[in-house]
Amino acid sequence: MAWFSSRKATKETFSEDIWMKCPKCEKHIFKEDWQNSHKVCPKCNFHGKLTAWERIGITLDQNSFVELNSSISPADPLNFHDSKGSYKDKTSEAIKKTGLKESVVTGTGTINGLSVVVAVMDFRFLGGSLSSGCGEKILRASNYSYDKNLPLIIFSASGGARMHEGILSLMQMAKTCAGIARLNEKNIPYLSVLTDPTTGGVSASFATVGDINIAEPGALIAFAGRRVIEETIKQKLPDDFQTSEYLLEHGFIDTIIHRSEMKTKLHQILSFYGR
């Protein structure tokens, strides 16, 4: 079928089935283009959020991924209730909505033939928050890297620690970093890929201590929230504050990689390690 016949924007076909607005620039774009570019806007280069499984699909070789520790799910250690209900209900809702059991999917696979261990966070699951279960899965992924001598890649997408688990969520920062420390000692490569958003307790733990820190363009990467900072210092912050580009400029990111080139570049980097 010729390209013009499939994309003819007649009055009848100008519908939401075919068109969508870019969430960033708000220009009309073809849904098909958005999907084909894996949720990158063809007009403004905005990188939309991917689900963990979408990320695995575009990063690892077909049929190479084997999931690890898929049965880990949240408990409710504090019996936590807030004004909108219980943490238990929130987690069951998230499980139902996403088909995931925690905010991270972990496993092994290959990238253009090179074996790796990956942990991929999913923002849909309670904002990708770091919980006991999430921390445990990330630690086990790094332990698997350690035992099998395989590079570890973590894709972060998280609002921070999951406060419904109280102090235990905070401790996951120390726990995951203790896992990374062991990889450093054994000289096992750890690549951290920061995607939109990576904030709070995740930015202040494993996400910013990669041997190589990679970010997708335009991702929000922050420790404290913009509003909190503006309230503290009583000043308006620059527009590009806390973006990938800002962090690159200030020396906390090695490189920004476009989604379409991520797999190729990850493979290139890993091939330097000669494993």
């Binding site: 420390a181 202040a204 733990s205 900072i229 503290t232 210092i233 200030h250």
Partner: peptide
């Protein structure tokens, strides 16, 4: 939580301590 903290890598500074205190 301030501009200078973010500029100089508040997140990385804490994360680095978590890694190194383990070692």
């Amino acid at each position: 939580p301030g501009l200078e903290g973010e500029e100089r890598g508040q997140a990385e500074a804490i994360a680095r301590n978590l890694v190194e205190m383990a070692q």
